[in-house]
Design a protein around this nucleic acid. Structure first.
Lengths: 147, 147
DNA sequence: GTAATTGCAAATGGTTTGCAGCATC
DNA sequence: GATGCTGCAAACCATTTGCAATTAC
C-alpha cells in the first residue's frame, strides 16, 4: 500500500478506536479499500472487493461502516438520486467533481474559480453554509474517443 | 397569474403542442402550478395542488408530466438521494442554489463567481461538459432565528 | 463478560412501469 | 377514430432497519 494511503488508514483507525468503535476484519477491509481507491467507489464496488478477502461479508455491513465514517466526517458522500452513491475517503470534505455521464468516472481536479463561492453565497443570502456540492456532468475524453 | 408566469406557461404549452403532445386538464394544471411557484416544488407538492382542482388526479400522472418536461428541457430537476426531487420550470437550465437543510427552502440568487467555472473545468480535464450542479447547504436566516 | 458488530431478511420510500379504459385532437 | 393520457396497482432499487448469533475488547 502506498505511504499516503497507509497514513490515511492509520488516521481513520485511530479515530475509530478513540471513539471505542471496534476494528473488525470486515471493517478494516472496508477502510483499506476506501483509502486505496481514488475512483470514488460505490458501496457495491467496495463490497465486491471486500468479499474477495472475506467471502461471507454482507452488503449491510459495508453500508453500516460507510455510514459510520460519513457521520464521523471521515468520508465524503456523493449522493445521486438515479444511481448508487459514491464515496471519497481521501478528501473527506466538499470539493469540485467532474462526472462522466457515460462511464461513471469521477475526477476531482483543482478548480481555481471555486474558492470563495460559499462565502459569496453566504454573504448574499444570510445562510450559514456548512457544505456544498460542485459537480460538472459531461463526457470524458475516453468516452469521446469511443464515440 | 402574473404576466411572467403566464408567458412561460404559454411557451411550454406551445412546445408541447408542437410535438403533438396533448394538453389534458391535469397536465395543464401541473404546468400552471409549476410556473406559478418559485419555491422549487417537489412532485408531491405539485400533486397536492393539482388535486385541489382535479381531485381524481394520480401521483403517477404528475410524475409522467414532470418527466416529460424534463426530457424536453422545460424544467430543471434538482435530484436528491435522501429526499424528494425538486423542480424549477422558471429557469430550466443549471444555476446555483442555496438549500436550507432544516426547512428545505431553496433559493437561487445570482452568484458572480460561478461564471466560467464549467469552462475552466472543461479546459482542465478535456471533458465535454453539458450540465452542472452548484448547491450550497446550510441554515437559512429564518431557521437561524428559530434556533 | 459486555457491548458492539455481523449477516440475514424484511421494510422503506421516492420513482417507474404495465395495462385497461378514457379523452384529446 | 386513432393515438396518447390517466389512474390504479405492482414493481423497482439503493439504502436502512430489526434482530438473533457472534466477536472484539
Amino acid at each position: 500500500m502506498d505511504p499516503k494511503a497507509q497514513a490515511r488508514l492509520q488516521q481513520m483507525v485511530e479515530k475509530l478506536k478513540a471513539q471505542r468503535f471496534r476494528i473488525t476484519p470486515q471493517r478494516l477491509a472496508v477502510l483499506e479499500i476506501l483509502v486505496e481507491s481514488d475512483s470514488h467507489p460505490s458501496v457495491e464496488t467496495v463490497y465486491a472487493q471486500v468479499r474477495k478477502r472475506f467471502p461471507t461479508t454482507s452488503l449491510a455491513t459495508v453500508y453500516k461502516t460507510v455510514t459510520l465514517l460519513k457521520e464521523m466526517n471521515e468520508v465524503l458522500e456523493l449522493g445521486f438520486h438515479n444511481t448508487a452513491n459514491r464515496y471519497d475517503a481521501l478528501k473527506p470534505y466538499p470539493h469540485p467533481h467532474v462526472i462522466c455521464t457515460q462511464c461513471g468516472k469521477i475526477l476531482d481536479p483543482p478548480l481555481e474559480g471555486a474558492h470563495g463561492l460559499a462565502q459569496e453565497m453566504s454573504r448574499k443570502t444570510g445562510f450559514l453554509i456548512s457544505s456544498h456540492r460542485l459537480d460538472f456532468y459531461g463526457i470524458c475524453p475516453d468516452c469521446q474517443r469511443r464515440g
